[in-house]
Write a protein that binds this DNA or RNA. Sequence first.
DNA 1: CGACGGGACGC
DNA 2: CGACGGGACGC
Length: 368
Amino acid sequence: MENSTQCSQMNGGTNMMPGSGQEESKTNLIVNYLPQTMTQDDIRSLFASIGELESCKLIRDKATGQSLGYGFVNYKGAADAQKAINSLNGLRLQNKTIKVSLARPSSESIKGANLYISGLPKSMTQLDLENLFSKCGSIITSRILCDPQTGTVAGGIPVKWFDGSRNGEDEDAGEGSSSNENQSISKGVGFIRFDQRSEAERAIKQLNGTIPEGATEPITVKFANSPSSNKNALPIPPVAAQYLTPTRRFLGPIHHPAGRFRFSPLDSGQLLPNNLITGNTMNGSGWCIFVYNLAPETEENVLWQLFGPFGAVQNVKVIRDFATQKCKGFGFVTMTNYEEALMAIQSLNGYTLGNRVLQVSFKKHKNT
DNA sequence: CGACGGGACGC
DNA sequence: CGACGGGACGC
């Protein structure tokens, strides 16, 4: 129905449509990369702050009920939908950067259009990859996997903003110099999602086994695995579950103009430890939590997953030995709200992770 | 048992 | 050799 060149391939443009007069469904949005803990109501309240909604749906795993990390938000008016894209696309929520874009009309032909590509030269950038595949069709998303370890910059969020699927590349304007010395090292594998499955099939036929210009080895192009297997993600959102009952569900957004509601179950001011009132751990922007007895191979995502369910997590840090890059057994988590930090500590202190019993407390002052 | 980072006024 | 994203189309 739509002219294959819909708004899907918006390279080169910003996220406001240049001037193509496509008046299809400009009210329905797809929201991707939602934090695991966000509920449908969380999403609704976030997007309803922009304008009146027609509907809102979080997609969940049918069997487990777990969020699949994306959903659909349909506005009554197209202007509000566009406004939501402009203001919420790229919003950081917990450890995620959400993506907000127009949803394509649901159709069989767009399913199974995701490709897995391996054997890429390390020097190949996301843009190179797109250039290679764009001749086969309209690219929705592209991505090159990078070594996670190099991405652990202070701030804990290795997100380099998302895929070049929408605004081509503004990275040249970004860090100026970082283009060459690619701070993160490509693993030589990547993904391309096409608009249509037929385009993906074409890409396999045309590009599988071929050697990219300037490369020496052929690449492998195949369909990506179905996203059914849940590889990462801790066994369970530990004890946090009991705090996430409907009666006291809380929204996780860290900082967003629309000040969110916040419950405060504890009013007794003396709950604050003495050494905390002075502001030792209260860094002006958050409460720093010390986590002890982490396994040597612990990575940042473990801390995100452990603490995320309790509320707004600003930052996590796994302390590693410089030489071995193994975790030294402890790490830090900074949470925005005291109540949430306290609940996380109370719930996770003594929690058995793997075969280790965690010790979790507010970070102590350096010299006391 | 053990155990609390790292960068950092920047007008 | 290698390896499945941050779960992208209504679960």
